[in-house]
Design a protein around this nucleic acid. Structure first.
Lengths: 129, 129
DNA sequence: TTAACTGTATTATCACGAATAGTACACCTA
DNA sequence: TAGGTGTACTATTCGTGATAATACAGTTAA
């Protein structure tokens, strides 16, 4: 379910947060789905339970999951819409990257071509905002 | 010349490296241009000379600058071409980002529109590879 | 020649945050 | 009741970015 790279600069707990969000966006995780328990995921990924907890706390803070003490952590009903909204505010990252690639002499046409290919591949629904 | 954000997760020395590379790509720094001296830049940016040196060592390692002991650090003749080549290998970052934005329900057309705008704005030459 | 600049090298130390370790408590359910 | 769940807390380790303080060597111009 998760793929952790311990050598990455990005903290492990953040990798879990981001991958969870991606799983929600791709539809692999839907509202109401139960997350792996703190302890079980710690065993699976061979990392400390506290690290998992830290990731879950952050996901809860963002409204992506909801904790039910004694039962488990579950994907929040609003998770998907929340993420759509968040991603929309990250369009400037797209701008920055494109600007740099253009500066490096990469043709606009090449980027457009890739965009088309990706759009055709990722056959996903819309975000009803 | 440089804009350092001390609170960023990105190390200061890396900020200097990346900004230098961007300046080369934009044409603000050309082959043969002299970089600020380690000590002077340290004073200007109010950071430790060792941090500047670390950035310069990395730039030298990448072939972007060349050191002339006793004289200074200078933009390497191959700097621009090197960066064009490097950026080209970062197209998968573009793919990853686009994929996520598409998943978040952002229309392909919107991204294309932004791409057009950016291409029109950044009126730069090509990279003769 | 001297002074003042340049890059380079070395060692020690500090500061911050990620990650670990260990323990404890409360809740839910079969 | 037993064993799962989330939660809280403290202490410690560890890596690394950044600082501090020197020292040495090459270049340049007064």
């Amino acid at each position: 379910m998760f793929r952790i790279e311990p050598l990455s600069r990005q903290p492990v707990y953040e990798q879990i947060v981001e991958q969870t969000e991606t799983l929600v966006l791709t539809g692999s995780l839907k509202a109401g789905d139960q997350m792996p328990s703190v302890r079980s995921l710690a065993v699976t990924l061979s990392i400390n339970p506290n690290t998992i907890q830290k990731a879950y706390i952050e996901l809860d803070r963002r409204g992506i999951i909801q904790a039910a003490p004694g039962k488990g952590n579950f994907i929040s009903p609003a998770a998907y819409d929340l993420l759509c909204q968040t991603k929309r505010s990250q369009l400037d990252a797209f701008d920055t990257l494109v600007r740099e690639l253009l500066l490096a002499g990469i043709e606009k046409e090449e980027l457009c071509g890739r965009l088309d290919t990706l759009a055709a591949t990722s056959l996903k629904g819309e975000c009803d905002v």
